[in-house]
């Protein structure tokens, strides 16, 4: 199977054998891991990729050998966060972004999710990076005021992130999550689920990305 053609080779086993985009993404991630794709390779694959291929590159970044500082994927994350394609935005805010985006870019990534309707469940390390972030709190408050003064609803996820910012940096474990939970109506949908990791045994395995920035589904 080739990276570009994975989509048409990953179909559901039962008739009518519809395409299985999640399996295709998992297959692409596994191809990248097996090839130990480096910075120049992932950059070329991303720049030449369809949206589905770009998602796979973004998802695989935390598990690839990207040089000593591991930052070769940062321009790809930044590119994805400039799009309005929520499939790409959701894939961009994974553990790699949590580890490598600076504070300004990361705050804007969180706001971008709120703007475009991507559930913040997709944001890896949300609790850890939000905790005590007064600047993010200010941005969220301003955005909420802007929406309210326009007579428009505030995104369901906004109070949830705001509550996280107000946790003390030294406070106790927040892994159980804040009490303000967003309803699932903001819908991650199938396209923003965690994809396979290199260590997974099958295409449906969810990612496990180390102790620092686990998938947000474990935080919530």
């Amino acid at each position: 199977m080739r990276f570009a053609s994975a989509g048409r080779h990953c179909v559901r086993g039962e008739p009518p054998h519809h395409a299985d985009p999640e399996a295709a993404e998992a297959a692409r991630v596994l191809i990248l891991c097996a090839a130990r794709a480096d910075g120049p390779t992932v950059t070329r694959l991303y720049e030449h990729g369809t949206a589905a291929e770009r998602r796979a590159v973004l998802s695989a970044l935390p598990q690839l050998p990207l040089g000593t500082d591991g930052r070769a994927g940062v321009p790809l994350i930044e590119d994805a966060l400039r799009t309005n394609d929520t499939r790409l935005v959701a894939a961009a805010v994974g553990p790699y972004a949590a580890r490598h985006l600076d504070a300004h870019a990361w705050r804007h990534a969180v706001l971008k999710c709120l703007f475009t309707g991507v559930s913040v469940d997709a944001v890896a390390g949300l609790a850890e990076r939000s905790r005590g972030d007064a600047e993010l709190a200010r941005m969220l408050g301003d955005y909420a005021r802007e929406r309210t003064s326009a007579g428009r609803p505030v995104p369901d996820d906004l109070p949830r992130v705001l509550a996280l910012t107000q946790m003390s940096p030294l406070s106790a474990d927040v892994s159980a999550g804040p009490s303000v939970r967003s309803p699932s109506s903001s819908a991650t949908g199938p396209s923003v689920r965690p994809s396979a990791s290199c260590s997974s045994t099958g295409p449906s395995a969810s990612s496990s990305t180390g102790p620092s920035f686990g998938p947000s589904s474990e935080e919530a």
Partner: peptide
């Protein structure tokens, strides 16, 4: 594909 997060075409 389920448009998922995009009820009412929000991102556009």
């Amino acid at each position: 594909a389920d448009p998922g997060a995009l009820h009412e075409g929000n991102s556009i």
